[in-house]
Design a protein around this nucleic acid. Sequence first.
DNA 1: GAACTGATCGGGGGGATTATTT
DNA 2: CCAAATAATCCCCCCGATCAGT
Lengths: 174, 174
Amino acid sequence: MKTIEIDEELYQYIAGQTRHIGEDASSILRRLLNINLHLLSQPGKKNQPENHYSVFTDLLTSDTFTNEKSIINRFILLLGTLYNYNPTHFSIAATSLHGSKRQYLAKDKQSLEISGKNTKPREIIGTPYWVISNTNTARKVYILESIMSDMGLSESLINQVIDIFSPPTNKANS
Amino acid sequence: MKTIEIDEELYQYIAGQTRHIGEDASSILRRLLNINLHLLSQPGKKNQPENHYSVFTDLLTSDTFTNEKSIINRFILLLGTLYNYNPTHFSIAATSLHGSKRQYLAKDKQSLEISGKNTKPREIIGTPYWVISNTNTARKVYILESIMSDMGLSESLINQVIDIFSPPTNKANS
DNA sequence: GAACTGATCGGGGGGATTATTT
DNA sequence: CCAAATAATCCCCCCGATCAGT
């Protein structure tokens, strides 16, 4: 159990959504949040193998993601989701990932800055991590691939991500 | 401030939705809940007649809008919403708006291009219109103000918009 | 000369390209 | 010495403040 602080008004609002006497906050919030997002596993029911990937498909089809045209922003959005999907696995994957000189991911800007001459670290919002940003697209995709693979995510999900970052191939011919 | 208890997993999920460093739980939850329900009015005001303006308040608080840091994109997003709110009134307002030489809004790129030397027209997605983009922020705000005023929108809504586009005043002193 | 309007141009970010290392 | 992998320079383009013109 975790404790969080919220303002009085919001508290009243949430309390007002109680469905049965004695219902706890988690239950109410899960119901409210579920309306939008098909949340992560409900307490009881076992999540069948595939469906926990919904976090990713949700992101990839979200407005926030699709409205974002720049590679770097999509890259960071995806890393954030990967972290939140499984912080522990993400950390392990992040630690073992680096170039010959540069460190690609770290919990502080400085580590990245000193590992190269112009790494241009960027914060991964919603996460304690920072990433290198001064790379071409190929390397960004490589970073995503490595992390996802190390986290044990499915081949098909990985390919889906690679596709999204691939150059907007000319649909004309072929 | 009130304290509530929630399970670990739910906590992680919520924390993962943080948008800016140091964001508190109330802020995150309000955003998440607002997406579905246009929540109970923020502190104070009871929902009065005005509510057909919800299109605007929805936009202004939407992720798409708030995630968007650049003036120009917010500008275009807002123009799009104005058009869809009332295409007829928008058109009337658009027609009567221009500088001494430049035309500010038009249904085709060319009209704008030939009305000045470097107008940099931008398409207003979801709309048959284009806008000039080579202006400073003050002029962009002026364009919004004029249109909104001509469309008969409320003073308070107009001011709200102006505020949003105002420079991120230094909160330090004052 | 004051106010308004136009559009040049500097700053900054993104990432392909090129230099460097392995 | 060549190829592959990696680093990081640097060009391009966007934005919009600032300055020039009306």
